[in-house]
Write a protein that binds this DNA or RNA. Structure first.
Lengths: 127, 127
DNA sequence: ATACAACTTGAAGCCGGCTTCAGGTCAAGC
DNA sequence: GCTTGACCTGAAGCCGGCTTCAAGTTGTAT
């Protein structure tokens, strides 16, 4: 699979794909004699994984560490699992912070509805 | 209230408080004759609001716009409400993306537990 | 009165995560 | 065979959000 195809499939700019590769997130992408990338199915699965993790805000560095460990084999299983546990915890905190901000916004939006209603009444009175 | 007290109360570095002020998020902080800031209760409420919104990732620019509109009075009620509605929508999307990543991590962590159990069994056998 | 911590400013620096640029190679269609 | 577009590279640039720096002033405790 060519880079443009991967880009289109996962809706990630080609530049970003190259950037991820340079950052060490895609260490196995093969290139043909003339240097053109050919993404395997496994590469694509990693791309999809990276996309998902990045969309939740996991840092590139953390993903690199995880992927490096992955390629070191079974002796790193525990460390890999621990990374996922740590990141999961951070995501829960983040989700909860966002949730409480959503609730605060709900309340404020509601207040605006009331305030706006009152203002409009005032305007009608003056007519 | 002095800047160091506000800093301590809300657990925000003094440099960040000055940065927010410069960015236009705290347009009303008064200074005494010798130029030292004195945060009013209202300023503090804004600080707390900004902290909450920033913790959920609302951009400084958006907060600035909202705060500018606030100081323009009732004629901006609708626009302010719309900003909150738009940001609320983005937060819901963000929260949901995080939630599905959490679920994916849950699944993977579980898989690791199984894999690790199997590996340990193998190790025992060999002993 | 002197030291020392806390305050001030504008400007520069840093970090993460892309994004763009310059300059070159390659491949497919006309 | 020539153009055109997709690919390649390393390096530089950009943006948001702080953070640090340099250099100076103020306020408080001994």
């Amino acid at each position: 699979m060519k880079i443009s195809e991967v880009s289109e499939k996962y809706n990630i700019p080609v530049d970003t794909l190259r950037y991820y590769e340079k950052a060490g997130l895609l260490p196995n992408v093969q290139k043909n004699e003339s240097g053109i990338r050919d993404y395997s199915e496994s590469d694509c699965n990693w791309v999809e994984f990276i996309k998902c993790m990045r969309s939740a805000g996991l840092p590139v560095k953390v993903l690199k560490r995880y992927i490096d460990l992955f390629h070191m084999g079974d002796s790193t299983l525990n460390e890999r699992k621990q990374i996922l546990i740590d990141e999961r915890k951070k995501l829960i905190e983040k989700r909860d912070a966002i949730q409480s901000t959503i609730e605060r916004l709900d309340y404020k939006i509601n207040s605006y509805e009331h305030t706006i209603a009152i203002c409009e009444k005032e305007l009608l009175k003056r007519k």
